[in-house]
Nucleic acid binder design. Structure first.
Lengths: 361, 361
DNA sequence: GACTCGCGTGGAAACGCTTCCATAACCAAC
DNA sequence: GTTGGTTATGGAAGCGTTTCCACGCGAGTC
């Protein structure tokens, strides 16, 4: 016996067949006499036998591994804190079930090549992290029948992919509504990256809520961003040189809100005294820096956890029904938005307003 | 043919043997006539054949996968920015070589169980992320002959593990020296987590450098921390209520330095006017928050890149020689340390001082 | 015309495991 | 003594590749 011991070696040492060893080592020892069981276990232990998981996967046609796939768009993991949080949730669900994770970071936009990397028998299913519009990851059906769950993007139904994500529309509506109820009427908006569905969903909810309150959306206050802090700075530059300013700006994510805040600091514009700012995501950066940014929080860990759960369900039952799970965002009120602003004028009729998701820190 | 097409299916369609298909698909087409090659490629393409990587791994006895193993101590990935940066470097090296990554997060301290998870044939080698003292990961030799490289911990030779890490001692010596050259004489220190080798290395370098300059190390200014921001706060509490204070405090990492800074802000103690602070790591948090913390920077991405390189070398050549690679830290001078402090008294003889690692941001 | 040689191709044995099914031995029942 | 039913164990066929080696054949050499 050279190299790592195999079933054969254990069987030889225990004086039985490999079937017997295999069965006993898989916990089917009730089939055998006690002394046999004991002999086999002892032999295995003495040899330091460890089942070869590759061979096992081949025989079982299951790898007990799931892939976590980053979109080629943001293939760099660094500072992708969203992926981290989600990954933690996935791990939490997977570990007790003895599943492992394979990290896949395609670096091309050719869907055939991407799916060759993903669906080559090495994983039982995949979690797609925040696929964007036009991503090769979404050319899924042509190339693969692998169970798949997407997180961080609420995909339109036609993609036929299960997704787990924050309920962007409801959350942004909640935030907008809350801002309005604080008395704000002149509201600006920094849009997210146009390739992200979330950007459109957040913008749409904003516009709808404004309409609901009969408030005008002024297009010169709708700034195009791309979810990066720098684009928040640019938005601030563009907005703050206008003669007429909104009293509050909603950024489609925290990063842009922070860029905006930064530029305000540069210009020595007091927040929230001269202008209010709100974000979206309750990013870890904001939390950790202790920036008092009013924003929407959601449990990214839970997103990962649910994704893993859903994926395993799909794998085990073969159920391929795409299913959308939206989790609630929670309004986190901090100090970046002036409250009770111009209350006198806040006499718009009260709409039905879900009290859920109230402030907490 | 049900399920995914296999070599057999392709061979049947191309009217040849599976050997032929296998050879051609592996690029050994020079062995065959052109028309054969073309037929096989066409058949493969038409069937959408993708080699099963599990079967391939079994036959080749190589998985083309390396494991990235987190220490059970910090099995949560979240906010482990170090792991992120390193992972990115690893990925950068591995991707062009068609290696994949398996993420392994053991959750127990039983070394046998841990190594069963790691060395079960599913990976060709492992990168251990910052193993701490007493980690089951380091009980390596008893359980496995897998090629292994550690990063983020400079392990003592007896572990027989290759490691790639910042040169903690040199970097901390550089920092200490620089602080002394700014005129500081009364210097405090916040120690890192006692289970991390780096903590001891950094402390040792500090003490040695102080001795080199004949400066006393006052034990009441040596605060015990654990690398967390909170422990930096506690250290500040402990230090700042003393009647006599150092003019500068070196924290063994940036997180603790930030905790320290935070407490200074709470107490309205001006930095660096009333007390100076330096960190170590140039953590992404500090960078991103724009905190003007003087610190030591090193290229964590490069650490990952080198680790992957080294690991692949070990895998491919079978070379098991443990080899230590220390990369240079770079002093980053920002504004948290008062410079030219009490220059009048700074008349200690100039030591040999490497000018490398000058300030940059 | 027997010999070698290279070329193109295929057979078949691994790789290490799982699992279906057969077998053998034993006992009880008729 | 045949049957039937347990119980304990082993044989062997996969799983989908890779790879070593052998085979048949036509061309070149003596």
């Amino acid at each position: 016996m050279r190299g790592k011991p195999t079933l054969r070696d254990v069987a030889a040492r225990a004086g039985c067949s490999i079937t017997t060893v295999s069965n006993i080592l898989q916990g089917r020892s009730h089939l055998y006499r006690e002394d046999m069981v004991e002999q086999v276990l002892r032999a295995g232990h003495e040899l330091g036998y460890r089942p070869n998981s590759v061979a096992r996967s081949l025989a079982r046609r299951r790898t007990a591994t799931i892939g976590v796939v980053l979109d080629p768009q943001h293939a760099r993991l660094t500072h992708n804190l969203y992926a981290h949080d989600v990954l933690d949730g996935i791990l939490a669900f997977l570990e007790p079930r003895d599943y492992d994770i394979r990290l896949i970071t395609p670096r091309t936009n050719d869907p055939a090549a991407v799916w060759r990397r993903i669906d080559n028998g090495s994983i039982d299913g995949a979690v797609l992290i925040a696929p964007v519009m036009g991503s090769p990851l979404l050319e899924w059906r042509c190339y693969s029948r692998l169970p798949v769950v997407a997180v961080g993007s609420t995909l339109p139904d036609e993609y036929g992919v299960s997704c787990i994500d924050i309920d962007n529309e409801t959350a942004m509506a909640t935030l907008t509504e809350w801002v309005i109820q604080q008395g704000h009427r002149a509201i600006g908006f920094i849009k997210g990256h146009p390739l992200h569905w979330s950007a459109h969903q957040r913008e749409r909810a904003f516009r709808r809520t404004m309409a609901l309150y009969n408030l005008p959306v002024r297009e010169e206050w709708m700034l195009q961003g791309d979810y990066s802090p720098e684009s928040g700075v640019r938005a601030a530059e563009q907005l703050l040189r206008q003669s007429e300013l909104p009293t509050v700006v909603l950024a489609a994510n925290d990063d842009m809100a922070m860029g905006f805040l930064q530029h305000c600091r540069t210009l020595e514009i007091a927040v929230p005294d001269r202008i209010s700012v709100a974000g979206f995501d309750d990013s870890v950066w904001v939390q950790r820096m202790g920036i008092p940014l009013t924003t929407i929080h959601h449990d990214r860990y839970q997103v990962g956890y649910l994704a893993a759960q859903r994926l395993l369900h799909q794998i085990e039952t073969g159920d391929a029904h795409p299913q959308r799970t939206l989790i609630n965002g929670v309004l986190v009120v901090r100090q970046s938005v002036a409250m009770g602003y111009a209350l006198a004028s806040a006499t718009t009729p009260q709409p039905t307003y879900s009290t859920e998701g109230g402030s907490r820190s």
